[in-house]
Design a protein around this nucleic acid. Structure first.
Lengths: 200, 200
DNA sequence: AATTGAACTTATTGTACAATTGTTCAATTT
DNA sequence: AAATTGAACAATTGTACAATAAGTTCAATT
C-alpha cells in the first residue's frame, strides 16, 4: 500500500505547513482538506479528529528529524565522534527546518522536562536509546567511564530537551553556539575515562 | 527602621503561605490583610498592587534561598567541594521548603529557560555569579580547566534551572537523586583539569 | 508614619444567543 | 472494497451585556 503511504506523507507535510503558519487553533480542518484538494469529511478517513491530525503530524516530523540524526551518528565509528555528531545533527536540523520550528514556538509544551506531560513518549524514548547506545559503546570500548549509565542517559536526555527548549527561543545565535560548545566540551570530558586533549 | 523591616518580613511570610495554599488568583488582597490583622487599604502602604505583592514575596523567598546556598558554599574552601555544596544546598532547600515549592507548582513559569521571560533577573543573576565565582576560583587554583568560562557558567546555570523545573515535578525521589548524582559526577569531571578518582 | 473605611474602578463570572468549526454517516464514485 | 462527498448534527467559540466580586484610591483618623 505504497499509494496510501504517499497520501499520508502528503497529508502530514501540508498539515505541518498550515499548523506552522496559523497554529493549532486558527488552522481549520477545512483549510487542510482544501490544501489536499479534498473535502473535510474525507479527512476523517485518515485521522480520528483534529487533535489526532495534529498529534500524528508532529510525530511524523519528529521521526523524520530522528532519522536524520541517526544517519549522522551512523557515519561515525568512535563513540566520542558519535556523541558530537548526534548533538550537532539534532541542533542543526531544527535550525534549518522552519516549519517544525514555528510549530514549536506556537506550542512550546511539545518539549517538556516533565515526563508525565510528554505527548510524544515513543519518539522521545527512541531519542533516549540513541544516547544510551552511544554511552554503552563508549563504555564497552573503555573510552567512557561512568558509574550509573541509566541515570546519566536520563540526565543527558534532559540536557538535550533543555537545549531544544532554548533553541526556538534563543535570540543570539552566537551566544547559543558558545553555550552549545561549552556544554559539549563539559559533557564529553565528563564521560571520558581520561581527559585527553580535545580533537576538534 | 528595623521595625518596618520586621513588618515586611511578616508580610512576605504570610503572603507566601497564602499564595502557596490558594495560588495567585484565589488569594485576595483581603485574605492577606486579614492574616496580618490590617485592612486591605493599608496593604497599599507597603506594596503597589497585588501583582507587586506577589512579585516581592517570591523575590524575598528566592533571596532567602540564595542566602542559604551561599552560606553552605562559604563553609568549603576547595572549588570542587564548593560546587557540590552549591548543588546540594540548592536542591535540599527546595525539598524542605513546602510553601515555596507549592508556589512553584502553581506558577511553573517562575523558573524559565527563556532569559527574556525571566521575572526574577536580579535573583538569577546573583545565582549565576555564585557559579561563576566557583569556576573562577577553580581555574585560578588550576583544579578546573575550561576554555569558555562565560558560556560554561551560562550552561551550568541552565542545567541548574532544568533541575529546579524537574524538582517540583518529579514523582520518584530515588530516580531524581540518581539523576542528580549522575549530573554532578559528569559536570565535575567535565570541569576538572585531570580526571581524579572522585572523593565522595 | 501608619491605618482605616468608604467610594471608586477594574476585572471576572454568568447568561443567552449567534456564528463558526468539528464530527458523523448514508449515499456515491473510483 | 476503498476512497470520497455533502448534508445533517454536535461541540466550541465569540459577542453582548448584566451582575458580582475583587482591586485600587484617598480624605479622614489614630
Amino acid at each position: 500500500m505504497a499509494i496510501k503511504e504517499e497520501k499520508y506523507q502528503q497529508l502530514f507535510k501540508e498539515s505541518l505547513g498550515l499548523f506552522a503558519v496559523f497554529g493549532y487553533k486558527k488552522t481549520t480542518i477545512e483549510d487542510v482538506a482544501a490544501k489536499l484538494g479534498m473535502t473535510k469529511g474525507n479527512l476523517y478517513f485518515y485521522v480520528k479528529n483534529k487533535r489526532d491530525l495534529y498529534q500524528k503530524t508532529i510525530h511524523w516530523a519528529l521521526i523524520k528529524w530522528q532519522a536524520h540524526v541517526i544517519k549522522a551518528v551512523d557515519k561515525e565509528t568512535c563513540p566520542r565522534k558519535k556523541f558530537m555528531a548526534m548533538a550537532r545533527a539534532a541542533m542543526s536540523y531544527i535550525d534549518t527546518n522552519k516549519s517544525l520550528r514555528k510549530i514549536l514556538i506556537h506550542d512550546p509544551e511539545i518539549f517538556t522536562l516533565d515526563r508525565e506531560k510528554d505527548r510524544f513518549p515513543e519518539a522521545n524514548q527512541a531519542a533516549r536509546e540513541v544516547i544510551r547506545s552511544i554511552i554503552d559503546q563508549g563504555i564497552a570500548e573503555k573510552i567512557f567511564s561512568i558509574t550509573d549509565v541509566c541515570a546519566t542517559t536520563e540526565y543527558l536526555f534532559s540536557v538535550y530537551m533543555m537545549f531544544l527548549i532554548k533553541t526556538y527561543v534563543f535570540l543570539d545565535p552566537t551566544a547559543f553556539q558558545q553555550m552549545f560548545d561549552a556544554a559539549l566540551q563539559l559533557n564529553l570530558r565528563g564521560l571520558m575515562h581520561n581527559n585527553s586533549p580535545s580533537t576538534p
